[in-house]
Design a protein around this nucleic acid. Structure first.
Lengths: 222, 222
DNA sequence: CTAATTTTAGACTAAATAGTCCATAATTTT
DNA sequence: AAAATTATGGACTATTTAGTCTAAAATTAG
């Protein structure tokens, strides 16, 4: 099928344009001539997941390209061909991490009653095997000095706060959450409580300590 | 006065042994021979303070020696003579930052009623001109992978939690804080709330948002 | 099979980085 | 004033880093 979009491993073309448009010229993945190329041997998603872990563990500046190659189990050339450069890889890692963790959090948040949903959202992180969060890492490393990084973090935070506000309103309506609470304030607070849990976990806090934090945070809603 | 301890600028000898013993051999600040040397022209504390700001703003890996020189306003040689190397400078910065912020927090915490003290402690960070915290930065950058960094952070956290527990007990006794609250859990929570405020501030949250977080955190105590 | 194309591994490059060295200037005791 | 000593600035070095290039292997269409 000449002229068709193509990915080596047979997976979906995956042309989220915001992500990949920048690579198109240099990679020219559009096939015009007849002969096909050797397909990619590694799993792009898996490699990206390993990059996410590496960056979350050591930060952007603290992760060398050699470390990335090692963690991702791909060759140097594959990294640059597939992900552009270190910064583009980082931005894609952050974008992907934000999307994935957002999906998980939304899923937890929207299950059960409003209060149970909020509890599940906080608890989801506590139950996670890895205790490092690329989002918090990025905020701490860059503050709001890097516009692209900030944009990704701000967008994710805004979406999560909006979802929290909706759930809090709902909880107020059912009486599960104190009617005098301001939704915006509570949403800010719960996001901060989640960050607090993440920082504590990153510092080596016990599961019991993390549960303490969660329980006390929930107390403020009733 | 031969054989006497000496600091160039006439300030106190400042031999907190835990801090400086490591430099003694390489610096040999003990004066035996008669002639005196040129005194240091820069203010050690001020230079260290600037290093703290630089590290807090960009992290350990993200701050180059050139950036440090620039921020501290000293020469390359002075940095290495006075502080050892980049890592020793970082550790001293972290140690000094921890001591100073601990002193401030203790001061706020122990003023007024227990609840007012806790509020003042949280509010102290909100009111601070600089919104970056070297402690949180270090935890996020290194997790608990670096023993020396971890030790400094853990010690500071333990001390602050102990102080919080005492104040919470006091508040329970006076009835200002709900008697059913577990001191340890509440101390864990308040420290996490402070971290949450710091991460939010680092991400560019408004003062109003930070106050929201503080108010909601205090709500959980009553 | 052959041609076309891309992956992979590893050599290579240019820049940045941490840390050292050296000559000069400055300061204090004798 | 002279000697001793140390701070300073800048040149210097060795290492690491991000990123490029090359050559061989692999894979698929024709």
């Amino acid at each position: 099928m000449p002229g068709q979009f193509f990915t080596a491993d047979g997976s979906a073309p995956n042309f989220s344009p915001a992500i990949h448009s920048q690579f198109l010229t240099s990679q020219s993945r559009i096939n015009i001539s007849p002969a096909m190329a050797r397909p990619r041997e590694f799993d792009r998603e898996a490699a990206l997941g390993n990059a996410i872990s590496a960056f979350a563990e050591h930060g952007y500046e603290g992760t060398s390209t050699d470390q990335l190659l090692d963690a991702m189990n791909i060759s140097r050339q594959s990294l640059y061909n597939t992900f552009g450069d270190k910064r583009q890889l980082y931005l894609e890692a952050l974008r992907t991490y934000a999307a994935e963790s957002m999906a998980e959090q939304m899923h937890s948040l929207n299950g059960g009653t409003p209060l149970k949903g909020i509890e599940a959202m906080l608890n989801a992180f506590i139950l996670r095997p890895s205790k490092s969060c690329l989002g918090v890492s990025a905020v701490c490393e860059f503050g709001h000095s890097d516009p692209e990084v900030s944009m990704l973090n701000d967008t994710a935070a805004r979406a999560l706060r909006a979802a929290l506000e909706r759930r809090i309103s709902e909880g107020k309506a059912t009486g599960e959450i104190d009617g005098s609470i301001d939704e915006t304030a509570a949403a800010h607070f719960l996001l901060a409580a989640l960050s607090g849990i993440k920082v504590a976990a990153r510092g080596g806090a016990s599961l019991e300590a993390l549960r303490d934090i969660m329980r006390m945070a929930l107390r403020s809603l009733t």
